[in-house]
């Protein structure tokens, strides 16, 4: 374990920690209002570490649906993580053995993935683990407090804090899209497709998790053929 790498990961994940804390606060509040205990809500957050999947999971639980429904819901909503894992696995290279990969898998979320991929230096195991610690703590503690004290935080403040994660995404995407024409195209195409899912006739029925997966795949496939990276290009 390299201390310097680990603390670099910790520092990079600070905005995620803050964002997760406020979003999971809302999750805790919502879970308790649906009759789930404080302990159970906290356990869900600690073992899942995912936003969309957990919110959908609450619906499944409150409707007392089949376990198979739970499986299918999680599979579809979280399928974007499979794509992220594939991309991240290429950046990990030989430095990550089986154990490191099994441990890293647990912390693959939209935000942590984005931070790991945005790192210009090679990804190390210590850095990856450093990235994961605070978000797990923030997500679990936020859920616990949200479930415990419910609606003490003013709604206006909670809403504003919820935007933190989007702000972080913007901070990652904008500089990349400005630097490289292919990435600008990828970004615009993905936005075009996700708008289609939002406003296109009949497409609103598609779950948000699935529409993100389809938009991501379409935009990336189109750009892979439009702008294939050259063979000499070496990935960091």
């Amino acid at each position: 374990m390299h201390k310097k790498e680990f603390s670099a990961g910790l520092i990079a994940s600070l905005p995620v920690f803050i964002g997760y804390f406020s979003v999971s606060f809302g999750f805790g509040t919502m879970a308790v209002s649906l009759g789930i205990s404080v302990f159970e809500a906290t356990l869900i957050s600690f073992t899942n570490l995912t936003s969309a999947g957990q919110f959908a999971g609450l619906t499944v639980i409150s409707e007392a649906a089949l376990l198979f429904d739970m499986f299918l819901t999680q599979l579809i909503i979280n399928s974007r993580y499979a794509l992220m894992s594939l991309a991240l696995g290429q950046k990990m290279g030989d430095r990550f053995g089986l154990g490191a990969r099994l441990a890293s898998s647990f912390v693959i979320t939209d935000e942590i993935f984005a931070l790991a991929m945005a790192r210009p230096d090679p990804l190390t195991v210590s850095y990856m683990l450093g990235l994961g610690v605070l978000p797990i703590i923030g997500w679990t503690a936020g859920t616990f407090l949200g479930a415990l004290v419910g609606s003490i935080l003013p709604a206006s403040l909670a809403t504003a804090l919820g935007v933190a994660l989007y702000g972080m995404f913007v901070a990652i995407v904008v500089p990349q899209a400005l630097k490289s024409r292919p990435l600008l195209w990828v970004s615009l195409l993905a936005i075009f497709f996700s708008c289609l899912f939002q406003w296109g006739p009949g497409l609103k029925e598609v779950s948000s998790g699935l529409s993100i997966v389809i938009s991501t795949v379409l935009a990336s496939v189109i750009c892979a053929f439009m702008f294939p990276i050259s063979d000499e290009e070496v990935e960091a």
């Binding site: 992220m84 991501t216 990336s220 892979a224 990276i229």
Partner: peptide
């Protein structure tokens, strides 16, 4: 490899807008 290189940017963009 190109596809995987484009996935992060595509995924983040699709998650930002219009959500």
């Amino acid at each position: 490899r190109s596809f995987l290189k484009y996935v992060p940017c595509a995924c983040l963009s699709a998650m930002i807008f219009p959500s």
